[in-house]
């Protein structure tokens, strides 16, 4: 059987305030514990704030600065440059933002940091909406998904962040999720060894925001991959695409039907989503020269 062997530094601590069974908390565990103690983190308003615990407690043994919503990337760049000036260039600086803080309000700052190839690792915990404020749509929310701001289902499609960032030609972009812990840790390790702006987008299915059972985050993560909704891949220097785990041709319905945010879908809408996913998967394969 598939067997994990993961070496962890104990950076992320129990006693944090994430919802029970939270995918983001699990992702954070492996991000922090893989990057290790010689790091500083940047957390904008997101679920990761409460996850850290209220002052004066912290669930993270590395220093964290809680910055403004739109400036995670630039905040991280400021820290990194300050360490450089202090002669401590070996300190890793991580931005840990949500999809709202990345796809929407933080995109401008991220673009600038990517353009400068600032030496930071940027992690986007993509749960496809503003879950911390009670499930509103973001530009990462997929088409037809229910949110409180799209009660009839979202009419526009999900933004392709990876392609936007790939256009900046940053050294490393990867997608991953906690359904594939080995993949996730591999990519963080790889990113850690590189320099420049490294971006990792993690799909973190939200129990409450998406509406599925509380023990199912890994299953949902895997279904997203197996149906082709969220393939796990890497882009190096904006050019070299590598697919690590992709669609297994599983019908999209297997993924959609398990989520409350999709329960209103008509057959046509499901077909429409299927078509979009298929196109996306084909496009990715083409980019990867498959």
């Amino acid at each position: 059987m598939k067997h994990y062997e993961i070496a962890e530094e104990r950076v992320f601590l129990p006693g944090h305030a994430a919802c029970p069974g939270c995918a983001m908390a699990l992702a954070l565990r492996y991000i922090l514990n893989t990057v290790g103690l010689n790091a500083v983190g940047v957390i904008p308003p997101s679920c990761m704030g409460p996850m850290m615990g209220a002052n004066p407690y912290s669930s993270m043994r590395i220093p964290i600065i809680h910055n403004s919503f739109e400036s995670s990337a630039s905040t991280a760049a400021g820290i990194k440059r300050a360490f450089k000036a202090r002669g401590k260039d070996d300190v890793h600086v991580l931005a840990l933002a949500g999809d709202g803080g990345t796809y929407d309000i933080g995109l401008q700052a991220l673009s600038s940091v990517a353009e400068h190839n600032e030496d930071i690792m940027y992690f986007c915990m993509d749960n496809e909406g503003y879950m911390n404020t009670g499930t509103q749509k973001s530009s990462s929310t997929p088409r037809h998904a229910y949110t409180t701001s799209t009660p009839g289902g979202k009419e526009s499609r999900k933004k392709n962040l990876v392609e936007i960032m790939a256009a900046h030609r940053v050294p490393y972009i990867a997608t991953t999720n906690i359904g594939y812990l080995d993949d996730l840790v591999y990519k963080i390790k790889k990113a850690k060894k590189m320099q420049g702006t490294r971006i990792v987008v993690l799909l973190t299915p939200c129990i409450d925001g998406w509406g599925f059972p509380g023990n199912d985050v890994a299953t949902m993560s895997r279904l997203a991959v197996q149906t082709g909704v969220f393939p796990l891949y890497e882009v190096e220097d904006g050019e070299k695409y590598t697919i690590n785990h992709g669609s297994q041709g599983m019908p999209i319905e297997n993924y959609l039907k398990r989520q409350r945010r999709y329960r209103h879908l008509s057959k046509d809408q499901i077909e429409e989503i299927q078509k979009e996913v298929d196109q996306g998967w084909q496009r990715l394969q083409k980019l990867a020269n498959l």
């Binding site: 600065i65 910055n67 630039s74 400021g78 450089k84 700052a109």
Partner: peptide, 23 residues
């Protein structure tokens, strides 16, 4: 270390975090 970001907002964000990093 000069940082020339895309806006004054990001400039100030970097000012704050750099300052908090002790410089």
């Amino acid at each position: 270390e000069f940082i020339t970001p895309e806006s004054e907002h990001s400039a100030m964000a970097a000012c704050i975090s750099a300052s908090l990093t002790g410089v």
